[in-house]
Design a protein around this nucleic acid. Sequence first.
RNA 1: CGGGGCGUAGCGCAGUGGUAGCGCACCUGCCUUGGGAGCAGGGGGUCGGAGGUUCAAGUCCUCUCGCCCCGACCA
Length: 575
Amino acid sequence: MRWSNALINTVRETPKEAETISHRLMIRAGMILKVGSGIYDFLPLGWRVIKKITNIIREEMDASGAQELLMPVLSPSELWQETGRWQLYGKEMMRLKDRHDKEWGLGPTHEEVITDIVRRQINSYKQLPVNLYQIQIKFRDEIRPRFGIMRAREFMMKDAYSFDRDEEGALKSYNNMFEAYKRICRRIGFNYRPVEADSGAIGGSSSAEFMVLADTGEETIIYCGKCEYAANVEKAAAIVEAKGGNAGEELQKVHTPDIRTVEELAAFVKMAPEDTAKTIFYIADNKFTAAMMRGDREINEIKLKNALGAPEIRLASAEEIKEKTGAPVGFAGPVGIKDKGIKLVIDNTVAVMPSMVCGGNEKDYHYTGVKRGRDFEEDMTADIARAEEGDSCPKCGGKVKAQKGIEVGHVFYLGDKYSKAMNAVFLDEQGKTKEFVMGCYGIGVTRIAAASIEQNHDENGIIWPMAIAPYEAAVVPVSIKYKEGYDYCVELYEKLKAAGVDVILDDRDISPGVKFKDADLVGFPLRVVVGEKNFKDGRVEVKMRKEKDFQLLDKDAVFERVREIVEEGKNKLKS
RNA sequence: CGGGGCGUAGCGCAGUGGUAGCGCACCUGCCUUGGGAGCAGGGGGUCGGAGGUUCAAGUCCUCUCGCCCCGACCA
């Protein structure tokens, strides 16, 4: 491509809405254009990156034995009603009616649709296993889209679904995908980590997320410094050191005017936060439920939800708490709660506290010396604490650390959740009817582009890895008026193009400063600069974007060298 | 959904009730060519939309739409 013909509008000023580096740089480099909240155009430069990413994914999916197909963006409500997700998915699924008043949803994911395909197409164990995938637009009406294409409402995803005759096979398929995802991440050049994850709304029994490590990530990873353990904080088991719990032996009601937070309370009664226990109220599955946590720790609602086996959980409102416990928010506690028909779950940390400070169930009062068993009785003890740095590793006992990450991939072992609900069955050797055992596997294609920029940039712009760069090399004549140099550039450009290198020729008649700034901003991995000063002596500058210095090469050696670097960069991460 | 903020040229912004502006970008010409040059000229606006107050509204009032940020873990 000649730059003079290309639609690449770089902008000097950063748009005010862009907060994260990737969002800012994608706009400034002319890769994306916003159409509406969470809705973006991919301009030619951005689209080239997306195509590179999908090519890598496609190659690795095909190599793993999966087959590509394409499902519609729109799916009929009936299919979603079969699994109950027409209700369950809530507002995140965009719904619309056609002219006949028939209801449709914009597919946020495609388990129902794929299961429908398979139940209609596969009747025999002889056709199994099978793994089907698509690369498609998804739509999720996010509460708050942000960070450009990082969390967009419309985005591109590769989703794959495996169908097996039994659990053993399904596990094999799952591991097969796990390995494929590792290869994809490696080829894209990510610094990443697979972590244990909660399976959320998709459901299923085990799952792993592929996290790209970046401080701007929206997810928190808990990982062990000593062993391989790594988990999303949503899932991470918390092995918390027992401490505190020294709040006296006798139950005493203490006047604590206007004391609401744990810090205020601990200071007021002259104890440590870990001597207190907070009681937080939830509506879990329409039942009023109290959860107790040691004062210095936070509750992990996802773990609480899973412990309760509740499909839906939310914090109780201030009014609900007042009405049910008789005390305003901040003063409710576990004492006497049982008589009010409130279910009580306590965290492991609370179970080992000899005594504690709790809410007094009366405005401006707390209890000290509250003892479990004597003063209250729980219905259940569970690990519902949010894991924190310094906790013990559940695998090896080492200390865990925390780090931010961007979720770019997620693999789920689904089991028969969908096949059962949708009566998707086949016949085994004995002629017996069996449900498919499924897995599903997603990769955020557009998110990968943003994640890569988060990991590869400097103050001047993007630094694309060779594998997904919009162009692998830029040929830049300092001035197109210097005929010998420019002719050389055109010839080099043509030769590289013919040799299969993705190359762009900056043939614009503008000052070299602009060209250099643009090349750095857009982030071509390799830059060839031809200026009169060096070219007079038959020398040409070759510079890697990620390196500071350039090398001067003989003009006749440049073509081979560029080709070499590009090939090496593209292939070194292939397995 | 709650709170806050912003809608004026493609982008970033100024604008005191009285002629709609600046920088960047864009177009023409000259000049320049190793890190977002210089000079001169030029095009581009229903001031988000609707209603209202006023002799007069970008500016004041009401409604509405859109966008952004924060929160939705406080016990």
